[in-house]
């Protein structure tokens, strides 16, 4: 996809999104409510109208080729960019999905191995010290110091953490 196409496409998506927000805002009163001022939907409604207006403005500027992007025929995402950004985004999504099943600690451990070893091509000692260090620091900081438990995945994995709880409580 060219930068030119991307700008138009994004502006159209944003315009549709704005219209969606306008429609959703009308669930609450967007007009004047006597004795209580503007209704609850008025502020988001008019803001979304502003979003729609500015998106259409960008589309008009695109057709008139005013913005530098609308004149650019370069690739929006080069193969090199996709090769770097793609795995990172996929990795983040997998990290989050993994959190539901294996918990945040184990997911971070695996994420670190994948990132440092396979994306960064660093040595195993470096990889393992980060992969083990990160969850350990997280555990000390959140479970211990902040008393905010992080998600540990399915309950079958819970016993894994019992010895650690004994340590801190």
């Amino acid at each position: 996809m060219r930068v030119r196409t991307a700008e138009l496409l994004v502006a159209i998506v944003l315009a549709i999104m704005s219209a969606g927000i306008m429609w959703k805002s009308t669930e609450l009163n967007v007009g004047w409510v006597p004795k209580s001022g503007p209704g609850g939907g008025a502020w988001p409604f008019w803001l979304a109208t502003g979003m729609l207006g500015t998106s259409i403005w960008t589309i008009i500027r695109w057709f008139r080729r005013v913005t530098p992007q609308s004149r650019s025929d370069e690739l929006f995402m080069t193969a090199d960019t996709v090769a770097i950004v793609g795995p990172v985004v996929v990795g983040l999504v997998l990290l989050l999905l993994g959190t539901y099943f294996i918990g945040m600690y184990i997911a971070v451990f695996l994420f670190m191995i994948a990132f440092v070893r396979y994306l960064g091509r660093h040595s195993w000692p470096m990889t393992m010290s980060l992969a083990i260090g990160a969850p350990v620091v997280m555990f000390c900081l959140f479970e211990w110091a902040l008393s905010t438990p992080l998600p540990k995945g399915v309950s079958a994995l819970e016993p894994l953490y019992y010895p650690l709880y004994d340590l801190i409580y």
């Binding site: 990172v88 960064g120 660093h122």
Partner: peptide, 11 residues
Amino acid sequence: PFTILAPIIFV
């Protein structure tokens, strides 16, 4: 290298 810093930032 950024490949070490970036995963730490993401976590």
